[in-house]
């Protein structure tokens, strides 16, 4: 029989989870999101030059502490919602539709579950990468490319202290990418684990979405609770260095917060998955009754 190589499990999961139309809609979504960002940046009256990184910042920085604009919220929330819809329930779908044939072939519930977790994290990574790339491409149609942050962004009123060392690398690799990816991975992993526990894809999708919506709502004008809310972790504009009213909300805090969620979900789920019934108990009772 032999051990099934883990790479084969991942390859199978990615092959079955991702369809061409999903990729297409992801590109379309981020193109629209990027256009929203362009709409915010380009018409802004200023003599200072702007570039593509302004759109990237506006697109992925999230709503601010006092910003209750629905447009800003939707601008930030849509990518998460779409990911939850596309991939947040792949594990539950696999379990309920093909669990009987799939999991025995893989050989163990834990290996199957680990495969689902790694697949989801990989999909999160690619999704974020695609999103950032598409937004940059769309904004390039309206604004110039540069290897530096624009004078407009550096001098904008959002900065309490202008970060002198702000570079493109910092913006992209230390702020936007880790926060977007980390939050997406954490909340979607939680969604997936809940979908397996409850055996209900819809409920887990609603829960994940509600988590993000409530994080936005409860965080508005409540600086003391902001850093404790899961969705806030990706809201760059609510972090302390951009919003001094919020204390102790550093980038390191967000990275640690998301890591704790991911770790907690993994630990609990690995304990529970070992004895999970592959066939639903409820279907047992209904069929046999």
């Amino acid at each position: 029989m032999g051990n099934v190589p883990f790479s084969r499990v991942i390859r199978l999961n990615v092959t079955t989870a991702v369809r061409w139309k999903d990729l297409l809609w992801t590109v379309v979504l981020f193109a629209v999101i990027g256009l929203f960002g362009v709409y915010e940046v380009v018409p802004y009256p200023t003599a200072l030059s702007k570039n593509v990184w302004d759109v990237l910042f506006v697109t992925f920085s999230g709503p601010g502490l006092v910003n209750d604009s629905l447009f800003e919220f939707v601008h930030w929330f849509l990518p998460y919602l779409f990911f939850f819809y596309l991939f947040g329930n792949i594990a539950e779908e696999d379990l309920s539709q093909r669990g009987v044939s799939l999991i025995p072939l893989i050989g163990s519930r834990r290996k199957w579950w680990l495969g689902e977790v790694v697949t989801l994290l990989l999909l999160s990574l690619f999704y974020v990468a695609i999103g950032i790339t598409v937004v940059l491409i769309v904004s390039r149609c309206f604004l110039p490319w540069s290897i530096h942050i624009s004078p407009f962004l550096l001098s904008s009123g959002i900065w309490q202290i202008i970060p002198k060392d702000l570079s493109v690398a910092t913006l992209l690799l230390r702020w936007i990418f880790p926060l977007f990816f980390g939050t997406l991975a954490a909340v979607s992993l939680l969604q997936t684990a809940l979908s397996i526990q409850w055996r209900n894809a819809f409920l887990s999708f609603i829960s994940a979405s509600a988590m993000m919506i409530l994080s936005w709502l409860f965080g508005i004008r409540h600086p003391s609770v902001v850093r404790w809310l899961p969705g806030s972790q990706s809201m760059l504009l609510r972090h302390t260095f951009l919003e001094p009213q919020v204390h102790g909300f550093s980038l390191a805090w967000s990275l640690g917060y998301n890591a704790v969620i991911i770790l907690a979900v993994l630990v609990v789920s690995f304990v529970c998955i070992r004895r999970i019934d592959i066939v639903k108990e409820i279907s047992e009772i209904h069929k046999e009754a």
Binding site: M1, T16, S96, Q97, R98, V100, S101, P104, G107
Partner: peptide, 19 residues
């Protein structure tokens, strides 16, 4: 063993990727 070796199974309605 979690599952029996060398065993083929048909249980409930077989599930496949419909696309």
């Amino acid at each position: 063993a979690e599952f029996p070796d060398k065993t083929g199974v048909l249980i409930e309605k077989p599930g496949f990727l419909t696309s």
